[in-house]
Computed example of a mutant assay.
Amino acid sequence: MATCSPGDYLIVPRNCHISVISALVLSGVVPKYIIPEYNSGWDIAGGITPLQLDEAVKELEEDGKRVGAVLVTSPTYHGVCSNVQGIASVCHPRGIPVIVDEAHGAHFRFHDSLPSTAIEQGADLAVQSTHKVLCSLTQSSMLHMSGDLVDVDKVSQCLQLLQSSSPSYLLLSSLDAARDQLSQNRNIFDEPLAIASETKDKLARIPGISVLDLPCFASDFPAIDPLRITLSASNLQLSGYEADDILYEGHQIVSELVGTRAVTFAVNLGTRVQDAEKLVQSAKHLSEKHFFANSLKPVKENRVHGPLENISVHLSPREAFFTEKRRVKIEDSLGEICGELICPYPPGIPVLIPGEVVTHDSLSYLMSVRHQGITISGAADAELNSILVCDL
């Protein structure tokens, strides 16, 4: 709202967080989606590239559309970082501000081995969830600004519109405590980084276990957060959900994020060496139990269709939000215009956004996650037996 007026376009990766869609509904800003690189073997979306962004800006300029801002998610929940510096170099000569959802990167500033921060790379606004990896209380976060493309007074006005007039001083004091903790110990991330590196090396040597790294993507992404450990047991013929259930129920290992083909763990300031070693030993047990047993079974066809591909937008999120709706069985929704936000959670990335046409890929993906019992956020029918569509 501080960078765009109603009717302006916001260029945004399609794997943005659910909160971005809510902001589009509130502001009346129109999205121009960029489809991030998608690895179907991992069922994980990566970042976006400066080239993709340049093409999106040119398309809108040729159509006479005004680009109010660009929003980038970096890092993603899995830790994949986009080239924010390259993106800023595309935007700033055109006077377009760059907003970075850096929710999972609040710790980047505090060790040389961590990726560069969004502000260091030229972002104009960066939103950080300080509570995710650092030690403030849940719900506490920070908004950082740099440069003069964004009006600081306008930002303050928008915050007054959206925030409570009775802020939580408990949350504010926890932010200050987290800041103080970091200022007193410049080497505070030495041990977590060493733990994460050693754990990844050990996991990668276990038969049937794969570890996500930059070579898993074709694009030249600059970094993956070294404190995120994403593993796959697909070679053991286990889905991410199956592997996660075994690790939790059999070994009391709690993951940060689980998907159809991968499980992600977050190393932070509270992670101990024995915690990481327990994960390694549990993964070894997983391998020993399933590697040879499943090698004798027919290979399961467990390919995942990218839910973010072939998107067709018929209405803006705001237009769809205020349009009359009707309920249809999910099996009968193909070709309809989605009237609600349907989002497997975690990671909080919508598969369908209000105003988008229900495609075969999105429907197949939703049917798959429904079958696996995944939590669905946003949908009125959490069981996904039906969805709301726009009644045009």
Rank of each mutant, 00 (worst) to 15 (best):
37 E>D: 06
248 Y>N: 15
212 L>S: 05
287 S>G: 13
368 S>G: 13
320 A>P: 02
224 I>A: 01
131 H>M: 05
388 L>Q: 12
132 K>V: 15
388 L>F: 11
229 I>E: 04
159 L>R: 09
220 D>L: 07
55 E>F: 11
306 G>L: 03
379 A>F: 02
254 V>L: 10
12 V>I: 15
154 K>V: 08
372 Q>V: 04
203 L>Q: 01
274 Q>R: 14
303 R>G: 13
145 M>N: 02
262 A>P: 07
185 N>H: 13
1 M>D: 05
211 V>I: 12
104 H>D: 08
159 L>W: 01
147 G>R: 13
102 E>H: 07
170 L>C: 12
30 V>Q: 01
325 K>T: 12
130 T>E: 13
277 E>K: 13
108 F>T: 00
144 H>D: 12
225 D>H: 04
372 Q>H: 14
182 L>V: 09
382 A>C: 11
374 I>G: 00
122 G>I: 05
279 L>K: 06
133 V>N: 10
303 R>D: 08
350 P>E: 00
238 L>N: 11
129 S>E: 14
184 Q>V: 06
53 L>Y: 10
157 Q>V: 03
7 G>A: 07
176 D>L: 14
307 P>C: 05
100 V>D: 03
247 L>S: 10
162 L>G: 08
123 A>K: 02
376 I>L: 07
187 N>T: 12
52 Q>C: 14
55 E>N: 13
275 D>T: 11
127 V>R: 01
294 N>W: 03
294 N>T: 04
185 N>W: 02
76 T>C: 11
149 L>C: 11
240 G>M: 10
193 L>D: 12
61 E>P: 00
352 L>N: 06
191 E>R: 15
118 A>F: 01
245 D>M: 12
157 Q>A: 03
370 R>Q: 15
107 H>A: 07
26 L>I: 09
323 T>S: 15
337 I>W: 04
73 T>V: 15
233 A>S: 15
371 H>F: 10
198 E>Y: 00
153 D>C: 10
364 S>T: 10
365 Y>C: 07
60 L>P: 00
390 C>M: 07
53 L>Q: 12
358 V>F: 09
81 C>V: 13
368 S>E: 14
191 E>Y: 13
118 A>R: 05
383 E>L: 06
252 Q>F: 13
311 I>F: 01
250 G>D: 14
377 S>R: 11
111 H>M: 07
115 P>D: 08
297 K>F: 01
388 L>T: 03
73 T>R: 10
10 L>W: 03
199 T>S: 09
308 L>D: 03
